[in-house]
Measured scan of single mutants.
Amino acid sequence: ASVAVIAAGTQGNIFATSALRSMRFLQILRMVRMDRRGGTWKLLGSVVYAHSKELITAWYIGFLVLIFASFLVYLAEKDANSDFSSYADSLWWGTITLTTIGYGDKTPHTWLGRVLAAGFALLGISFFALPAGILGSGFALKVQEQHRQKHFEKRRMPAANLIQAAWRLYSTDMSRAYLTATWYYYDSILPSFRELALLFEHVQRARNGGLRPLEVRRAPVPDGAPSRYPPVATCHRPGSTSFCPGESSRMGIKDRIRMGSSQRRTGPSKQHLAPPTMPTSPSSEQVGEATSPTKVQKSWSFNDRTRFRASLRLKPRTSAEDAPSEEVAEEKSYQCELTVDDIMPAVKTVIRSIRILKFLVAKRKFKETLRPYDVKDVIEQYSAGHLDMLGRIKSLQTRVDQIVGRGPGDRKAREKGDKGPSDAEVVDEISMMGRVVKVEKQVQSIEHKLDLLLGFYSRCLRSGTSASLGAVQVPLFDPDITSDYHSPVDHEDISVSAQTLSISRSVSTNMD
């Protein structure tokens, strides 16, 4: 405001104040949320940038038409019409005319000016109207692209899951042992070998009828009888010197917790746990005396209480009078009846079946994303299906024409109403129809010849004498029936064969 007042002088105070007050009108834009329509302006900018070359070309040609039209109309009207006294007036008329506004304040009066105005109007309006069409088509394409992008975003994750499931299904095939990355992934998420051994031990116990592997080994086996189970490696608790092959000598807290839970599941009659010990102070733990958990001091820290809870689970003690015997301790020893080589084939089979199920689920979810969402998608899918159906029908028609023997030239002739090819031409065609016709002709010829021969033979049998045999009239074959199959017997006289037959029969009768 200060700059405006200084620039306008003393009389500019009122002007500056009114100008600043008129800017209050811009507050109405906040009512229509114009300040939060950044996406709309961004869309407009992207459309203009995408079609910038077309817009520049249309505007450039339109500007050239405007300059030439205004100049030529000015030359034609400057002497006869006072409205075109300057080139600026003519340029104003050209702008209003070519933009199809047409105020009518300035019009050419001479015939030359009117002809020039009409010609440049028809030429220039087309170029001035091009930017509107370019922007409209650009907006339509952009909206369609955003629509497809939205659908693509919805299909991206199911497609990625389907590709991942397909690759993992491919890589978990037993015949592709060189693909090891997927197996490394499952090695990292699978439970430890100790848990798998416990699982298979329970399965084997159920197969043995509820007997433990130790009891199965204690059962008497006759001499020479084959053992029911192959000899396997035996594993004891981590306190002993022997372990399962492939295990580490260090046992983690999870393994100890699972070991304690498995020992508690063996039965309360074979294992008696004394009350857990509780320390009397955060600094020292008295293991010899058993106290109640309700006497825990409230001033303990979080670490002390955590250690106390761990001691409740991981440090059970047995009383002296209830101490288990050596046999019970041997039964409680952890027996590992299986090795990694025995378990891994079954584990890989389970993983393979899981990968198949996940692949089928991913495939079903991806197919669900291909379903249409709204009416536009339904129409688009219907149009695509219609085009596909037309293509299939056209391909089927082409194959039928190839089989029947109607080529493209014959199809055009039928469409024009011309006469089709004759039967002889159809026979000569190298097509399925021509071959079928040729075979039918040959079969008819053979059938006719057989009928003639059978009739001749029956007449010979009825006559009974050589004289009557020679008097029999043998009809000749019709050459038209034989089609294109020409037998060497067709052109010979059958009477010669009949005479030869009669001579042979007379000779045979004389010999008798």
Rank of each mutant, 00 (worst) to 15 (best):
A165S: 13
L169V: 05
T172S: 11
R176G: 11
Y178N: 01
L179V: 09
T180P: 11
T182P: 13
W183L: 03
Y184F: 15
Y186F: 06
S188C: 01
S188T: 10
I189F: 02
I189M: 10
P191T: 09
S192T: 08
F193V: 14
R194K: 06
L196M: 10
L196P: 14
L196Q: 07
A197D: 00
L198H: 01
L198F: 06
F200Y: 10
F200S: 15
F200I: 14
V203E: 06
N208I: 10
N208D: 03
G209V: 13
G209A: 14
P213T: 03
P213L: 14
L214R: 09
E215A: 02
E215V: 02
R218L: 15
R218P: 11
P220A: 02
V221E: 08
P222R: 06
D223N: 05
G224V: 09
A225T: 02
P226L: 08
S227F: 07
S227Y: 11
S227T: 09
R228H: 11
Y229H: 08
Y229N: 07
V232D: 12
V232G: 02
V232F: 11
C235F: 03
H236P: 13
S242F: 05
S242P: 11
C244Y: 09
G246E: 13
S248G: 03
S248N: 03
S249G: 04
R250W: 06
M251T: 08
M251V: 08
G252A: 11
I253M: 02
K254T: 01
D255N: 00
D255Y: 08
D255A: 12
D255E: 06
D255G: 11
R256G: 09
I257V: 12
R258P: 03
G260C: 12
G260D: 14
R264L: 10
R265Q: 01
T266K: 10
G267R: 05
G267D: 14
P268S: 12
Q271K: 15
A274P: 08
P275H: 05
P275S: 04
P276R: 01
P276S: 12
T277I: 02
M278I: 13
P279H: 07
P279L: 10
P279T: 02
P282L: 07
S283T: 13
S284R: 01
G288S: 12
E289Q: 12
T291S: 11
S292N: 04
P293S: 07
T294I: 10
T294S: 14
V296A: 13
Q297K: 13
K298R: 10
S299I: 12
W300G: 13
W300L: 14
F302Y: 13
F302L: 13
N303Y: 09
N303T: 12
R307H: 13
R307P: 10
F308Y: 01
A310S: 02
S311C: 14
L312R: 06
R313I: 15
L314P: 10
L314V: 15
P316L: 14
T318P: 10
T318A: 11
D322Y: 13
A323G: 02
A323S: 12
P324A: 13
P324R: 12
E326K: 12
V328I: 07
A329E: 07
A329G: 11
A329V: 07
E330A: 11
E331A: 04
S333G: 11
Y334N: 03
Q335K: 01
V340G: 00
D342Y: 00
M344T: 05
P345L: 07
P345A: 07
A346V: 12
V347L: 06
V347A: 15
I351S: 09
S353F: 06
S353C: 00
S353P: 02
I354N: 01
I354F: 08
I354M: 00
I354T: 02
R355S: 04
L357H: 00
K358M: 02
F359V: 03
F359Y: 02
V361M: 00
A362G: 01
K363T: 02
K363I: 01
K365N: 01
R371Q: 02
Y373F: 08
V375E: 10
K376N: 13
D377H: 09
V378L: 12
V378I: 09
I379M: 03
E380K: 06
Y382F: 05
A384S: 10
A384P: 11
G385D: 06
G385R: 15
G385C: 12
H386N: 14
L387R: 15
D388Y: 15
G391S: 14
I393L: 03
L396V: 09
D401E: 13
D401N: 09
D401G: 14
V404L: 13
D410V: 11
D410A: 06
R411T: 08
K412Q: 03
A413P: 01
E415K: 13
K416R: 10
K419E: 03
G420E: 06
V426M: 02
D428V: 08
S431C: 08
V436E: 08
V439M: 02
E440G: 00
K441E: 03
Q442L: 09
Q442H: 13
S445A: 11
H448Q: 06
K449T: 09
K449E: 00
L454V: 05
G455S: 03
F456S: 11
Y457C: 14
S458W: 01
R459S: 13
C460F: 12
L461Q: 04
S463F: 11
G464S: 15
G464A: 13
A467P: 12
A467S: 14
L469Q: 03
Q473K: 10
V474M: 10
V474E: 14
P475T: 14
P475S: 13
L476P: 02
F477C: 09
D480V: 06
D480G: 11
I481T: 13
T482P: 12
S483P: 12
D484G: 10
Y485D: 10
Y485F: 12
H486N: 06
P488R: 15
D490A: 15
D490Y: 15
D490V: 09
D490E: 13
D493N: 13
D493G: 14
D493V: 04
I494T: 13
S495T: 10
A498P: 13
L501H: 14
I503F: 12
R505S: 11
S506T: 13
S506A: 15
N510K: 06
M511L: 15
M511K: 08
D512E: 12
